[in-house]
């Protein structure tokens, strides 16, 4: 008797649309790079075929933008990002040659939780934070 009551309760409760736990699907694709608009760094989305890492985002950043667009970039093509972690961004190019705007672009695109030190060309720069 008890069991059939539970069954009936389940049946009635099972009706309609029930809330769920969060369900995860595929990894999110796309990358966020920071370009310059009106003298400020601003996030811009770039589609990717695969899940992107911070390193690949920096590579996307180094590819630059097509001329005549809304956005400009001060990051040189030969940036050559090598590695990214929470504290440092290693690149090929001499970091002292980078403009302040380019440094901001790189630091923001690297999306580290705190200030980041840039290393490259035997030089270091920073630590620098991404401006709000």
């Amino acid at each position: 008797m008890k069991r059939s009551l539970v069954l009936v309760a389940l049946l009635i409760a099972g009706c309609g649309v029930q809330p769920t736990e969060p369900i995860g699907g595929s990894r999110a694709k796309g990358a966020v790079i920071y370009l310059v608009q009106d003298g400020e760094v601003t996030p811009v989305l770039r589609p990717t075929r695969h899940e992107s890492s911070q390193l690949s985002a920096l590579e996307l950043l180094a590819q630059g933008v097509p001329p005549g667009g809304l956005y400009t970039t001060e990051v040189p093509h030969d940036l050559g990002p090598k590695s990214v972690d929470d504290k440092t961004v290693a690149v090929t190019v001499d970091v002292t040659t980078l403009s302040t705007m380019a440094v901001a672009q790189i630091v923001c695109t690297a999306a580290a939780p705190g200030p980041v030190t840039l290393q490259g060309g035997g030089q270091t720069r920073g630590p620098v934070s991404c401006p709000d």
Binding site: Q18, P19, T20, P22, G24, G25, R27, A28
Partner: peptide
């Protein structure tokens, strides 16, 4: 929290 893991996530709410 689920989204923070890097996946596309969805949840049904009532």
């Amino acid at each position: 929290d689920k989204v923070a893991t890097g996946v596309v996530a969805w949840q049904r709410v009532v």
